[in-house]
Amino acid sequence: MVTRGFSSGRKPPTDADARIPPGQYLEQGFPVLSAGPTPRVRTEDWSFTLKHGPRPIKTWNWTEFNALPLTKMTRDIHCVTAWTKFDTAWQGVLVDDILADAGVEPPTGFTLALSFDGYTTNVPTQDLTAGKAMVALLYEGKPITPDHGGPARLLVPHLYFWKSAKWLNGLQFTERDEPGFWELRGYHIYGDPWREQRYTGDP
Protein backbone atom coordinates (compact mmCIF):
# COMPACT_ATOMS: atom_id res chain seq x y z
CA MET A 1 0.00 0.00 0.00
CA VAL A 2 1.42 3.40 -0.96
CA THR A 3 1.10 5.91 1.87
CA ARG A 4 -0.51 9.14 0.66
CA GLY A 5 2.00 11.96 0.59
CA PHE A 6 5.02 9.94 1.68
CA SER A 7 8.25 10.12 -0.21
CA SER A 8 11.63 10.30 1.35
CA GLY A 9 14.79 12.11 0.53
CA ARG A 10 16.49 9.60 2.80
CA LYS A 11 17.08 6.83 0.25
CA PRO A 12 20.24 4.80 0.60
CA PRO A 13 22.66 4.99 -2.35
CA THR A 14 21.72 2.21 -4.77
CA ASP A 15 24.96 0.31 -4.25
CA ALA A 16 24.00 0.09 -0.56
CA ASP A 17 20.55 -1.38 -1.32
CA ALA A 18 21.89 -4.89 -1.63
CA ARG A 19 23.29 -4.69 1.89
CA ILE A 20 20.06 -3.55 3.56
CA PRO A 21 17.65 -6.37 4.45
CA PRO A 22 13.90 -5.88 3.81
CA GLY A 23 12.20 -3.39 6.12
CA GLN A 24 15.50 -1.98 7.45
CA TYR A 25 16.95 1.52 7.14
CA LEU A 26 20.51 2.71 7.29
CA GLU A 27 21.60 4.24 10.61
CA GLN A 28 24.80 6.22 11.17
CA GLY A 29 24.64 6.28 14.98
CA PHE A 30 24.55 3.27 17.27
CA PRO A 31 21.20 3.12 19.11
CA VAL A 32 20.97 1.28 22.42
CA LEU A 33 18.10 -1.06 23.32
CA SER A 34 17.73 -3.42 26.27
CA ALA A 35 15.12 -4.80 28.63
CA GLY A 36 16.53 -3.50 31.90
CA PRO A 37 19.16 -1.31 33.53
CA THR A 38 22.72 -1.53 32.28
CA PRO A 39 24.74 -3.86 34.50
CA ARG A 40 28.21 -2.57 35.37
CA VAL A 41 30.37 -5.67 35.32
CA ARG A 42 33.95 -5.12 36.49
CA THR A 43 36.54 -7.14 34.64
CA GLU A 44 37.85 -8.36 38.05
CA ASP A 45 34.43 -9.95 38.61
CA TRP A 46 33.97 -11.15 35.06
CA SER A 47 34.04 -14.80 34.08
CA PHE A 48 32.89 -16.85 31.14
CA THR A 49 31.65 -20.44 31.40
CA LEU A 50 31.06 -22.96 28.66
CA LYS A 51 28.39 -25.45 29.73
CA HIS A 52 26.73 -28.61 28.48
CA GLY A 53 23.30 -28.43 30.07
CA PRO A 54 23.88 -27.64 33.74
CA ARG A 55 27.43 -29.08 33.67
CA PRO A 56 30.32 -26.61 33.29
CA ILE A 57 32.89 -27.63 30.69
CA LYS A 58 35.38 -24.83 31.36
CA THR A 59 35.47 -21.37 33.00
CA TRP A 60 37.82 -18.50 32.09
CA ASN A 61 38.51 -15.34 34.06
CA TRP A 62 39.11 -12.02 32.26
CA THR A 63 42.87 -12.48 31.98
CA GLU A 64 42.61 -16.06 30.80
CA PHE A 65 39.94 -15.16 28.26
CA ASN A 66 41.97 -12.27 26.87
CA ALA A 67 44.87 -14.65 26.33
CA LEU A 68 42.83 -16.57 23.72
CA PRO A 69 43.45 -15.73 20.05
CA LEU A 70 41.83 -12.40 19.07
CA THR A 71 40.09 -12.13 15.71
CA LYS A 72 38.84 -9.02 13.88
CA MET A 73 35.36 -9.01 12.39
CA THR A 74 33.89 -6.05 10.51
CA ARG A 75 30.24 -6.65 9.70
CA ASP A 76 26.91 -5.01 8.97
CA ILE A 77 24.48 -5.41 11.87
CA HIS A 78 20.70 -5.43 11.77
CA CYS A 79 18.47 -4.53 14.73
CA VAL A 80 14.87 -5.76 14.84
CA THR A 81 13.78 -2.16 15.54
CA ALA A 82 14.62 -1.68 11.84
CA TRP A 83 18.01 -0.01 11.78
CA THR A 84 21.00 -1.42 9.96
CA LYS A 85 24.52 -0.21 10.58
CA PHE A 86 27.30 -0.88 8.08
CA ASP A 87 30.85 -1.95 8.83
CA THR A 88 30.86 -2.21 12.60
CA ALA A 89 34.36 -3.22 13.65
CA TRP A 90 34.81 -5.73 16.47
CA GLN A 91 37.59 -7.81 17.94
CA GLY A 92 37.10 -10.82 20.08
CA VAL A 93 37.44 -14.55 20.46
CA LEU A 94 35.78 -16.76 17.85
CA VAL A 95 33.46 -19.37 19.33
CA ASP A 96 35.62 -21.86 17.40
CA ASP A 97 38.66 -20.75 19.41
CA ILE A 98 36.76 -21.04 22.69
CA LEU A 99 35.78 -24.60 21.84
CA ALA A 100 39.35 -25.39 20.80
CA ASP A 101 40.74 -24.04 24.08
CA ALA A 102 38.23 -26.14 25.99
CA GLY A 103 39.20 -29.13 23.84
CA VAL A 104 35.64 -30.02 22.87
CA GLU A 105 33.51 -30.43 19.78
CA PRO A 106 30.02 -28.90 20.08
CA PRO A 107 28.07 -31.59 21.97
CA THR A 108 24.60 -30.52 20.77
CA GLY A 109 22.99 -28.60 17.92
CA PHE A 110 21.57 -25.81 20.09
CA THR A 111 23.10 -23.14 22.26
CA LEU A 112 21.77 -20.67 24.77
CA ALA A 113 23.76 -17.47 25.32
CA LEU A 114 23.73 -16.44 29.01
CA SER A 115 24.20 -12.94 30.41
CA PHE A 116 25.07 -11.39 33.77
CA ASP A 117 21.60 -9.82 34.04
CA GLY A 118 19.79 -13.10 33.46
CA TYR A 119 19.12 -12.43 29.77
CA THR A 120 19.25 -15.45 27.52
CA THR A 121 18.96 -15.97 23.78
CA ASN A 122 19.02 -19.14 21.72
CA VAL A 123 21.13 -19.71 18.62
CA PRO A 124 21.63 -22.95 16.69
CA THR A 125 25.20 -24.12 17.33
CA GLN A 126 26.02 -24.15 13.61
CA ASP A 127 25.34 -20.39 13.51
CA LEU A 128 28.10 -19.86 16.09
CA THR A 129 30.89 -21.98 14.61
CA ALA A 130 32.95 -21.95 11.39
CA GLY A 131 33.95 -18.34 11.93
CA LYS A 132 30.38 -17.03 12.05
CA ALA A 133 30.34 -15.69 15.61
CA MET A 134 32.59 -14.41 18.37
CA VAL A 135 32.63 -13.19 21.93
CA ALA A 136 33.52 -9.57 21.22
CA LEU A 137 35.80 -7.65 23.62
CA LEU A 138 36.58 -4.51 21.60
CA TYR A 139 34.48 -2.19 19.45
CA GLU A 140 36.39 0.06 17.08
CA GLY A 141 39.55 -0.83 18.93
CA LYS A 142 38.31 0.16 22.39
CA PRO A 143 36.75 -1.78 25.25
CA ILE A 144 33.01 -2.18 24.65
CA THR A 145 31.11 0.32 26.80
CA PRO A 146 28.55 -1.03 29.31
CA ASP A 147 25.65 0.37 27.20
CA HIS A 148 26.76 -1.71 24.27
CA GLY A 149 27.23 -4.85 26.32
CA GLY A 150 30.77 -4.59 27.71
CA PRO A 151 32.98 -6.08 29.01
CA ALA A 152 32.00 -8.82 26.53
CA ARG A 153 29.10 -9.46 24.20
CA LEU A 154 28.20 -12.16 21.77
CA LEU A 155 28.43 -11.15 18.12
CA VAL A 156 26.28 -13.14 15.66
CA PRO A 157 26.08 -10.51 12.92
CA HIS A 158 24.04 -12.53 10.41
CA LEU A 159 21.04 -12.70 12.78
CA TYR A 160 18.98 -9.81 14.22
CA PHE A 161 21.07 -8.07 16.83
CA TRP A 162 19.08 -9.16 19.90
CA LYS A 163 20.79 -12.53 19.34
CA SER A 164 24.15 -10.83 20.01
CA ALA A 165 23.63 -10.98 23.78
CA LYS A 166 25.14 -8.17 25.85
CA TRP A 167 27.04 -8.68 29.14
CA LEU A 168 27.75 -12.27 28.13
CA ASN A 169 28.95 -14.68 30.79
CA GLY A 170 28.46 -18.03 29.18
CA LEU A 171 27.35 -20.32 26.39
CA GLN A 172 25.28 -23.37 27.25
CA PHE A 173 24.73 -26.27 24.90
CA THR A 174 21.16 -27.54 25.12
CA GLU A 175 19.52 -30.71 23.83
CA ARG A 176 16.56 -28.80 22.36
CA ASP A 177 16.12 -25.36 20.82
CA GLU A 178 15.08 -23.50 23.99
CA PRO A 179 13.56 -20.05 23.46
CA GLY A 180 15.43 -17.28 25.30
CA PHE A 181 14.22 -14.03 26.88
CA TRP A 182 12.86 -12.19 23.81
CA GLU A 183 11.94 -15.42 22.02
CA LEU A 184 9.51 -16.12 24.90
CA ARG A 185 8.14 -12.59 24.52
CA GLY A 186 7.01 -12.58 20.94
CA TYR A 187 10.26 -12.48 18.97
CA HIS A 188 11.24 -15.01 16.32
CA ILE A 189 12.96 -18.23 17.35
CA TYR A 190 15.72 -17.85 14.68
CA GLY A 191 15.77 -14.20 13.56
CA ASP A 192 17.18 -14.07 10.02
CA PRO A 193 17.00 -10.43 8.85
CA TRP A 194 17.07 -11.44 5.16
CA ARG A 195 13.88 -13.45 5.66
CA GLU A 196 12.45 -10.72 7.95
CA GLN A 197 12.00 -13.13 10.83
CA ARG A 198 11.19 -10.49 13.42
CA TYR A 199 8.30 -11.81 15.43
CA THR A 200 6.74 -15.15 16.36
CA GLY A 201 4.63 -16.22 13.40
CA ASP A 202 6.87 -14.71 10.73
CA PRO A 203 7.72 -17.40 8.18
Binding site: M1, V2, T3, F6, S7, S8, R10, K11, G23, Y25, A82
Partner: peptide
Amino acid sequence: TAPDGYQAR
Protein backbone atom coordinates in the same frame (compact mmCIF):
# COMPACT_ATOMS: atom_id res chain seq x y z
CA THR B 1 5.57 3.29 1.58
CA ALA B 2 6.62 5.75 -1.14
CA PRO B 3 5.35 5.42 -4.73
CA ASP B 4 8.72 3.95 -5.77
CA GLY B 5 8.39 1.17 -3.19
CA TYR B 6 10.78 2.69 -0.65
CA GLN B 7 9.60 1.97 2.89
CA ALA B 8 10.33 3.54 6.25
CA ARG B 9 9.43 1.81 9.43
